[in-house]
Amino acid sequence: MSNKGQSNGAEVVQFPPRVALTSPDADIASMIEVLQDQLALAREGKLRSVAVVSVSADGEAVGTQWSCKGADVTGLIGKLTVLTHDLMAARK
Rank of each mutant, 00 (worst) to 15 (best):
H85L: 09
N8C: 04
P24L: 03
D27Q: 09
G78V: 02
L87S: 00
G78Y: 00
F15C: 06
A20I: 10
Q14I: 11
M31D: 14
C68L: 04
K4A: 12
L35D: 09
P16R: 14
R18I: 02
T81I: 00
D27Y: 06
D27V: 08
C68E: 06
W66A: 11
K79H: 06
V55H: 04
P17A: 15
E11I: 14
A90I: 02
A57S: 11
S2V: 09
A71I: 05
Q6V: 10
A20L: 08
N3A: 10
Q65W: 13
Q36L: 11
L41K: 15
F15L: 15
Q14L: 07
A57M: 01
Q6I: 10
A57H: 04
L87C: 04
E33D: 15
V50M: 07
S2M: 05
S30V: 02
L35E: 09
K69I: 04
E33S: 12
D58M: 02
G45R: 03
P17G: 10
P24W: 13
D72W: 05
T81F: 03
E60W: 02
I77E: 07
K79S: 08
V13L: 05
A89H: 05
L80V: 05
G45S: 05
P24Q: 06
G63F: 07
T74V: 07
E44S: 10
A40W: 06
S7H: 12
A26F: 01
T64W: 01
A26G: 01
L35G: 05
S30M: 08
V62P: 01
A20S: 13
A89P: 00
E44H: 08
A42E: 06
A20N: 09
L47T: 13
A10K: 15
V34D: 08
V34L: 07
L41M: 14
